Measured scan of single mutants.
Amino acid sequence: MQIFVKTLTGKTITLEVEPSDTIENVKAKIQDKEGIPPDQQRLIFNGKQLEDGRTLSDYNIQKDSTLHLVLR
C-alpha cells in the first residue's frame, strides 16, 4: 500500500509499505529515499509519536495515510 510522509519543509515522500511493516522498517525506507538516519527521525500520526517496535496496523495506518516526519 502507499503512504505519504510529510516533512517540515513541506516536501511529501511517497512510500510503498505493508500494514505489517514496523515503524523501524518505515524509517529505513525514508533513509533509503532521503538519506536521513533513522535515529534522527520521529514519525507522528494523528498527533501520536510512533514507536519503532510497533507496526503500521497497530496504529491503524491505512493506505494513503499521511505521517509527519520531525527531525531531532
Rank of each mutant, 00 (worst) to 15 (best):
V17M: 08
S57K: 06
V17D: 01
D32E: 13
T55S: 13
I13R: 13
N46P: 01
R72Q: 08
Q49N: 07
T7S: 12
D39Q: 08
R72A: 13
K27L: 14
I44T: 15
N25A: 05
F45V: 04
I44Q: 09
R54S: 14
E34M: 03
S20A: 09
I44E: 14
S65F: 14
Q31G: 06
P19K: 08
R42Q: 15
N46Q: 04
T9Y: 12
Q2E: 11
G35N: 13
L8V: 09
E18P: 05
E18F: 09
K63T: 09
L69E: 11
Y59N: 07
Q49T: 12
I36K: 08
E24D: 03
N25T: 02
N46R: 02
Q40V: 05
P37T: 13
G47F: 03
I3T: 01
L67V: 05
G10K: 02
I36H: 02
Q2R: 05
R54T: 12
I30F: 04
T22E: 04
D64L: 09
D39G: 06
T9S: 03
D64G: 03
R54A: 13
A28P: 05
E51M: 05
T55P: 15
N60W: 05
T7D: 03
L8S: 14
Y59H: 08
V26N: 00
I36S: 02
H68D: 05
Q2S: 03
K11F: 10
T66Q: 09
R72P: 12
T22W: 12
N25Q: 15
I61E: 00
G35E: 02
D52L: 03
L8N: 12
P19N: 08
V70T: 13
D21Y: 14
L50E: 00
P19F: 03
G10M: 09
T55G: 02
N25D: 07
I3P: 00
Q31M: 04
Q62S: 10
F4S: 03
V26H: 00
P38Q: 11
M1N: 12
V5P: 00
K11G: 11
A28G: 11
G53F: 05
N60F: 03
E16R: 05
V70P: 10
S65M: 11
Q41D: 13
K33F: 12
I13D: 08
R42A: 13
V17I: 11
G35Y: 05
M1S: 10
L50Y: 01
G47D: 14
K11H: 08
T7G: 09
I30D: 00
Y59K: 01
L71D: 15
N25V: 12
R54K: 05
V5F: 09
D64V: 03
K29E: 08
K48R: 08
S57V: 07
R42P: 10
F4R: 02
D39S: 10
D21N: 05
N25E: 08
G53P: 07
T12M: 15
K63G: 15
D58H: 11
R54W: 04
E16M: 06
L69Q: 13
S57R: 04
E51V: 04
P37D: 09
Q41H: 13
K6F: 11
F45T: 07
P38K: 13
I30V: 10
T66V: 04
R42I: 15
T22V: 09
Q40G: 02
I3F: 03
I3R: 00
D21F: 14
R72L: 14
E34P: 03
T55M: 07
L69W: 03
Q31P: 03
T12A: 02
K27E: 12
G10A: 07
V70G: 05
E51T: 02
I36N: 08
Q41M: 11
M1P: 05
D64S: 04
S65G: 09
S57P: 13
Q62E: 14
Q41P: 08
G10N: 13
K48M: 13
T55D: 11
Q2K: 01
I36L: 06
Q49V: 04
K11R: 03
V17R: 01
G35L: 08
I44M: 13
T55H: 08
L69D: 00
I61Y: 01
Q62K: 07
L8H: 13
Q62P: 10
I44D: 10
K29V: 01
N46E: 13
K11V: 10
T12H: 12
D64R: 01
G35A: 15
V26L: 09
V70K: 03
V5D: 00
T12N: 14
L71M: 13
I23S: 08
Y59T: 04
S57E: 12
I30L: 05
K29G: 03
K33H: 11
G53L: 06
D32I: 05
L43T: 01
K11W: 04
I61A: 09
T22K: 10
T14A: 09
I23L: 14
Q49E: 11
E18Q: 13
D39V: 04
I44S: 07
D32Y: 14
T22S: 15
D39I: 06
G47Y: 02
T66H: 14
P19W: 11
I44F: 05
A28N: 10
S65A: 09
V70H: 13
T9A: 02
N60M: 11
A28S: 15
L67R: 01
Q31V: 07
D52G: 03
R42W: 07
M1W: 06
P38I: 14
E34S: 12
R54D: 15
K33W: 09
L15D: 00
P19M: 02
V17S: 02
T66D: 13
E18R: 07
K6R: 15
K11S: 11
P38T: 14
D58S: 10
F4Y: 03
S57L: 05
S20W: 10
E18H: 10
D21L: 14
L56Y: 01
G47K: 01
V70D: 14
K63E: 10
Q62A: 11
K48L: 15
K29R: 09
Q62M: 09
D39P: 07
V17H: 08
H68E: 15
E24S: 05
E51Q: 03
T9E: 12
K27A: 15
L15E: 01
E51G: 13
L15A: 03
R72D: 14
G47H: 07
F45P: 00
N60K: 04
I3W: 00
K33D: 15
K48N: 14
K48V: 15
I30Y: 06
V26Y: 00
T14S: 09
D64M: 04
Q41W: 08
M1Q: 12
F4H: 04
Q2G: 09
E51K: 02
T55L: 03
D52R: 03
I44Y: 11
G35P: 11
M1E: 05
E34G: 05
K11L: 15
V70Q: 15
H68T: 06
K6P: 05
I44G: 02
I61P: 01
I30G: 01
D58N: 09
L71V: 06
L56H: 01
F45Y: 04
V17F: 02
I23A: 03
T66G: 08
E16D: 08
P19D: 08
K27W: 10
V70E: 15
P19L: 07
L71Q: 15
Q2H: 02
P38R: 14
E51L: 07
K29A: 09
S20P: 07
M1H: 10
S20F: 08
L67W: 01
I23G: 05
E24N: 03
P38A: 12
G10P: 13
Q62F: 13
K27I: 15
T22I: 05
Q40D: 14
S20E: 05
N46A: 12
G10I: 14
V26M: 09
K6Q: 15
L50V: 09
T55V: 06
V5E: 00
D64K: 04
L71N: 06
D32S: 04
I44W: 03
I36P: 07
A28F: 06
P37A: 03
R72H: 12
I36F: 07
R54Y: 11
S65E: 11
I23R: 01
N25W: 05
D39F: 13
L43V: 12
D58I: 09
F4V: 06
D52E: 02
T66M: 13
F45W: 05
S20L: 07
Q41S: 12
L71T: 11
Q41I: 06
E51N: 03
R72W: 12
N46F: 09
I13P: 00
T66R: 01
E18M: 08
K29N: 12
Q62V: 10
I23V: 06
G47A: 10
I44R: 14
Q2W: 10
D58F: 12
K48S: 14
T14M: 08
I23Y: 15
E51H: 15
E18A: 13
S57Q: 09
S57Y: 09
K6L: 15
I36R: 06
Y59M: 10
K48P: 07
L56V: 03
T12Y: 11
G10S: 12
T55Y: 12
R54P: 06
S65K: 02
P37L: 15
K33P: 07
Q49I: 12
D58Y: 10
T66N: 11
T22Q: 07
N60T: 01
D39E: 05
K63I: 07
L15H: 01
V70L: 09
D39K: 12
E16G: 06
G53T: 09
V5I: 06
K33E: 06
L56S: 01
T55A: 10
S65P: 01
R54M: 13
E18Y: 15
E24G: 03
L15Q: 04
R72I: 06
V5S: 01
S65I: 12
Q41F: 05
K29Q: 04
Q41V: 06
L71G: 10
E18W: 08
Q62G: 07
Q2L: 09
E24M: 10
Q49Y: 04
D58L: 09
L8K: 07
P37I: 12
F4G: 10
T7F: 08
T22F: 13
V70N: 07
E18S: 06
T66Y: 15
